[in-house]
């Protein structure tokens, strides 16, 4: 029961406003894909189009090579877990899980078997005869999962399914969903605004911005090789420092009032990105640049500094404990390969 999913030059407009500007993507059998982005970036619209809850304006969606763009949701063989879970409040857990099976026309004995199996898998067996309102948040979330997996669909769709849970439960459900998906080997598409969810759960992350795909790559690639300034600024916490710079003589970059060696192909005005966690405190004499400490916070495992470097705010995140006072001058260095360089005009990685 595996399926590929292909999105081709997909556009969507609401009235005169275009919210998706021509998206292309290929999703493989059994892949777990996270669609990541801020609210309003079009990620939910994209998911709803894949589900068939919204029309496309142009372009197509193929599941397993079949063009489903004109098909209604029920012919697409997909299942969806909603942010609010959308459990039927008048039905028991059993009836909720049974509903899609009943509509598929499966006979009663088979259905009972599949419900029992699903309930067992999700530890819902003791709650089968309760109504959704008598369940905790985590249990409701599992019922929503159960209703989706019991159909054995080709594709799972998740619309921010964990955003209504408390932090602890969210971490637990994260791995449960991931384990379940790996066990069932079903293609899954997971919409979220939480980069930790996206990066920890997904095989590949589709980062969206203003109706476009900024980058569609494995999580570590997003972190290590952000394709654009937007990706660089979005992925990672605390966020990457992005400062203006200029490439001189094709071998050095002037930025932050200092000079950094450079071996890339870029030229002229660029944006330089430096992750706070890649910055080190330099040995005396080996400093590339320095900053004046404005504030610091200690989270126990890390020390986060906010510095003033050549008039720009600059963040540094260290895993050592230091005694520093505001106003201190801090000598800094960055390994050569930790510099991210972007074209300032296009925002693209160079």
């Amino acid at each position: 029961m595996m399926a590929t999913l292909t999105i081709q030059s997909l556009r969507k407009s609401f009235g005169a406003v275009e919210v998706l500007h021509g998206l292309d993507a290929d999703i493989q059998d059994g892949e777990f894909i996270a669609i990541l982005g801020e609210s309003g970036c079009g990620k939910s619209t994209l998911l709803r189009i894949i589900a068939g809850l919204e029309d496309t304006t142009s372009g197509s969606i193929c599941i397993d090579g079949t063009d489903v763009t004109q098909q209604s949701p029920r012919d697409r063989d997909i299942a969806m877990v909603f942010q609010s879970y959308a459990l039927y409040p008048h039905m028991t857990v059993r009836q909720n899980i049974d509903f899609p099976l009943e509509l598929m026309g499966i006979d009663k004995a088979d259905r009972a078997g599949r419900i029992a199996e699903t309930a067992n898998l999700l530890n819902l067996t003791p709650y089968l005869d309760r109504k959704p309102r008598d369940l905790s948040g985590g249990q409701r979330q599992r019922v929503a999962m159960g209703r989706a997996i019991v159909r054995e669909p080709k594709v799972f769709l998740f619309d921010e399914p964990l955003s209504n849970l408390d932090a602890k439960l969210r971490v637990q459900m994260r791995s449960e969903i991931r384990n379940l998906q790996q066990r069932l080997k079903v293609t899954a598409i997971y919409v979220t605004h939480d980069q930790v969810e996206a990066l920890t759960m997904a095989d590949r992350v589709m980062l969206m911005n203003k109706g476009k795909i900024e980058q569609f790559a494995p999580p570590l690639e997003l972190y290590d090789h952000p394709a654009s300034v937007f990706v660089a600024g979005f992925v990672g916490s605390p966020a990457m420092n992005l400062v203006e710079g200029e490439v001189r003589d094709r071998n050095r970059i002037m930025a932050l009032g200092a000079e950094f060696p450079y071996a890339g192909t870029g030229a002229g005005e660029v944006t330089v990105g430096i992750r706070p966690e890649h910055v080190r405190i330099a040995e005396p004499g080996a400093a590339l640049f320095s900053g004046r400490l404005m504030s610091s916070e200690n989270t126990g495992d890390r020390l986060n500094l906010l510095l003033d470097v050549a008039g720009e705010a600059f963040r540094v995140s260290l895993n050592e404990r230091l005694q520093l006072a505001p106003g201190d001058s801090v000598p800094l260095s960055v390994p050569d390969d930790c510099l991210h360089v972007f074209d300032r005009a296009t925002g693209k990685r160079i």
Partner: peptide
């Protein structure tokens, strides 16, 4: 009719 909204 394909889509959910119009419902023809």
């Amino acid at each position: 009719m394909a889509n959910f909204r119009g419902r023809g």
